[in-house]
Amino acid sequence: MEQRTVDGAVAKAFVYSGVALVASLLVSQGWLMGFIPPPSPALSPEALAAIFIERKMGIRLGTLIQCICYTFWLTWGMSITFYMRRMERGVPVLTYASIANIGGGYVFFLLMPITWAALAFRPEQIDPAMLQVLNDLVWFIFILSWPPFALFMIFIALAIFRDHNVPTVFPRWVAFFNLWCAVLIVPAGLIEFFKTGPFAYDGLISFWFIYIVFFGWILVMSAVTLRAIATDRKMNAVPSRAAPHLTGQASPT
């Protein structure tokens, strides 16, 4: 078991990077860019171009923050994977699959601010029709990319269900919570079909509900992982104090 010990300090920093991701979303997309909720997909190209021209400084600043903080998808995702590794026996299939999945996930995250930044670079010179298509593309990247993220939730749930530790590394309700989130973000696929109403990309279901579920999921999983880190520290502290000759240290920190 010794080789599966997780460095609590690194793991904790990784978890908090996810919290920073959510906070950066509110600051950048909400406050600086004014894109919570998004501009309506039914808006005319000219009206949308006017928004980009008017808010170009806010969008540039916001996308810069996003480029930094959205990279934290990688670190945050890995904080969960450390613990999934410990749940699995034999070849850690779910852990491997999750690592690959997370590596792909942050590409989606970064593509959003990069595309927006390009649009805010010279919005006065872009044909409004083209600007509209590219702005649609950002929201499509954001919302339509739900399947790999749902898959990660399912991987987490499966790892918890098959966890051989007693007690389990994550409580079992976390598995059901992840399955629930995976089902809840399915309606995201509907943004392809509607320009107005609850299933458009600025709608009650496809935007608000999906956003709250997804970023709420990040926060809940952060709290759960922090608890696993704290439990770890308690468990590790006891045996090393009882048998200091095994670790070669008199007082472990």
Partner: peptide, 20 residues
């Protein structure tokens, strides 16, 4: 207990859908 969290959560989704 976990399945009831899932069921309650799913009913939240459908309650929102029905209200809409």
């Amino acid at each position: 207990a976990g399945i009831w969290l899932f069921i309650a959560g799913d009913m939240v989704l459908f309650s929102v859908l029905f209200a809409v």
